[in-house]
């Protein structure tokens, strides 16, 4: 029996810059994971519904617009409400250090800024995903 890691890569909100999300999606695929990519303009509710139906192990949110303290937090709260404690939530984008701390307090396990290597992200997921 081989448990494959399933990852949802989602872009919440109105930010239309999806190059980063696509690069990450491809890289995780190349690392042997199944990546569900939903495209742009996801609401928090859409992210969580998709995460449930796809039974993902990881939710990866990407945002470059600066609205992460609203949009990431909305997703984190919904996930907490639904008691999806076994889902690893990570984020990527331009996130100032102070916000990183707050996001981690809100339940985001990893926040990856510019310059993060693909290996770092893959290793983080493999180490922290539900076993």
């Amino acid at each position: 029996m081989v448990k494959k890691i399933r990852v949802l890569i989602a872009k919440p909100g109105l930010d239309g810059h999806d190059r980063g999300a696509k690069v990450v999606a491809r890289a995780l695929r190349d690392a042997g994971m199944e990546v569900i990519y939903t495209g742009l303009h996801q609401t928090a509710d859409m992210v969580v519904q998709t995460a449930i139906q796809e039974d993902v192990d990881v939710v990866g949110l990407s945002l470059l617009s600066g609205a992460h303290m609203t949009l990431f937090i909305d997703v984190l709260e919904l996930i907490k409400d639904r008691k999806m404690d076994d889902v690893l939530v990570i984020g990527g984008g331009i996130v100032p250090e102070g916000d990183v701390l707050k996001l981690k307090e809100a339940g985001m396990k990893g926040v990856f800024g510019p310059g993060t290597s693909i290996e770092e992200m893959v290793d983080f997921i493999k180490e922290n995903v539900r076993k």
């Binding site: 042997g32 990546v35 569900i36």
Partner: peptide
């Protein structure tokens, strides 16, 4: 790689 990029949902949002 055994991985996959599953993108059908893009059209089903």
């Amino acid at each position: 790689s055994g991985g996959a990029l599953l993108g059908d949902r893009i059209r089903m949002n």
